[in-house]
């Protein structure tokens, strides 16, 4: 089992795991993540309001923009509003705090507790975030979606097929974001404060994932460069699928690239983790 192999090699000390045990273990991490988030309830009550206000701000900006034009870059107002609104709804699902959690772990000196566990750290964090995502789905994403669909004229998915592909694609978005966050979080091991880094990543993802505006709004040269990066596969691609602007071969190709990025980013995260912990152990800190 390739997955189990990765789990071994990362620590070297893991006892041999059957795939079943591997799954059960990570389900346990997910469950803990789930229960932990429930403890912090205020975050979720206010989360719905926040997302609503966020979408509202962009609603008004775009409304002001579309006062002058009917269609910009192939998007009419109704399409664009759906693009933004549903884009924020799925963000409430794929968003996670792995990077911050790692930073806290380091600040509070609890990282040693992670290091002594005989599991792949990245999988552990991703599994925990997945548990949290289940919770977000129930208490944040769905309520936010209901509110936004009731208040704003958002459109349903283009077809049943697109809806299904969209859901799978959002799953990949989650993994891409989780992998990026883990990779960024590893820098907490070497830097005094990664707050600046986290903020830069936050704005980078917001802009280049296509959350704020579709990629086609960017100048051509910029689009060409962004095509080679994983960011637009977080929000832009799932939203194109939702709106029915991707189908058939294009859809399959886009989703394959999502999978490709998940693999590449996780490998990078794994490498960064080893690099950081290796240094940590040498320094004895």
């Amino acid at each position: 089992m390739p997955q189990a192999d990765i789990a071994h090699s990362a620590t070297g000390a893991a006892p041999s795991q059957s795939p079943w045990k591997f799954l059960r273990l990570h389900f346990e991490f997910a469950r803990v993540g789930f229960v932990n988030t429930l403890a912090y309830r205020l975050r979720y009550y206010t989360g719905i309001v926040t997302y609503f206000i966020y979408v509202s701000v962009y609603y008004f900006i775009w409304k002001a923009i579309y006062e002058h034009s009917v269609s910009i870059e192939g998007f009419d107002f109704a399409h664009l509003l759906t693009y933004i609104g549903v884009g924020w709804i799925i963000r409430s699902l794929y968003f996670n705090n792995i990077d911050q959690d790692l930073a806290y772990q380091v600040i509070e000196g609890r990282l040693a507790m992670d290091l002594i566990k005989p599991v792949n750290i990245q999988f552990m964090y991703v599994a925990r975030a997945a548990g949290e995502a289940v919770f977000r789905l129930a208490l944040l994403t769905i309520p936010t979606g209901v509110v936004l669909f009731l208040v704003y004229p958002l459109r349903p998915p283009a077809s049943w097929g697109n809806a299904a592909a969209f859901l799978v694609s959002v799953g990949f978005s989650f993994l891409i974001v989780a992998a990026i966050n883990f990779a960024v979080g590893t820098f907490a091991l070497r830097l005094q404060s990664i707050l600046g880094l986290l903020r830069a990543k936050f704005f980078l993802l917001e802009l280049f994932s296509g959350l704020l505006l579709p990629m086609t709004f960017f100048p051509h040269a910029v689009q060409k460069i962004l095509d080679l990066m994983p960011f637009q596969y977080i929000s832009y691609i799932p939203m194109l699928i939702y709106l029915g602007k991707l189908h058939g071969g294009g859809l399959a190709r886009a989703m394959s690239i999502q999978v490709f990025w998940v693999a590449v980013l996780m490998a990078i995260g794994d490498g960064l983790w080893r690099w950081s912990t290796g240094k940590l152990i040498i320094q004895g800190g």
């Binding site: 469950r31 429930l38 403890a39 309830r41």
Partner: peptide, 13 residues
């Protein structure tokens, strides 16, 4: 009183 487990956590909410 914090209740335990998934259901308990939901109840606490």
């Amino acid at each position: 009183r914090r209740r335990e487990g998934v259901l308990g956590a939901l109840q606490n909410l």
